[in-house]
Write a protein that binds this DNA or RNA. Sequence first.
DNA 1: GCGTTATGCTACGGTAAGTGTAGCAACGGA
DNA 2: TCCGTTGCTACACTTACCGTAGCATAACGC
Lengths: 112, 112
Amino acid sequence: MTKQAASKTRSVRGSRSSRPIMALLDLLGRRWSLRILWELRDAPLTSRALRSACDEASPTVLQTRLTELREAGFIELGEGGGYGLTPLGRELCEMVLPLHRFAERWHGKTNA
Amino acid sequence: MTKQAASKTRSVRGSRSSRPIMALLDLLGRRWSLRILWELRDAPLTSRALRSACDEASPTVLQTRLTELREAGFIELGEGGGYGLTPLGRELCEMVLPLHRFAERWHGKTNA
DNA sequence: GCGTTATGCTACGGTAAGTGTAGCAACGGA
DNA sequence: TCCGTTGCTACACTTACCGTAGCATAACGC
């Protein structure tokens, strides 16, 4: 993993591609990333509440994802504590929401 | 979180939740899942071509993801070889496509 | 002051997941 | 027959993630 000073690609691990979509796909393809966005869809949550919402996932990874998503500008830590979506993050979340309905139909097809 | 006869949830690892959205989020949150859907957006690809498209990712994981996505009913192995999207998979892919434009704008904001 | 509770965040040992290289059997064309 | 391609797998190694515990800080009631 040669790390020759990639200004933005630095945190994108596997995909050395510079295409933004690859970076985004890689970021969202890490554990709990999509789930975090999903759980924050309604209201901000504290780190502890978020952990509970995410099936008591390990705080180590959660904290890592939170930092990554924060650096990406999708979420932010509010004044009085608690993580919430930024305007940009909300846009992204809007693209994840329709997955809900799809998942319901998918579930009906696969084991019915 | 009762797992009353999880006939489909069996392969969902971390999230013991029975909610389909959680299962979907978990499946898509595994490495290369989103990328595979993305690379198959236009036309079917052979396993080798898909590997090349996915930045020469390890064939071990790729094969694992391919199997998972196939069991989920999102992709299928065509007659004359090559992986392609199923109608269901195409629907899912349609939700991933708008991420492209978003990623472009995102990239512009984060390092400009 | 003291203790309690909650915040965001981190250390550390163990397990699971992903990587990289090599190679398999099966099929088809020259 | 040899060659190239297909989908797929074995194996050792590295990395990511899990689970538990704990830190420093801050806000409360007493």
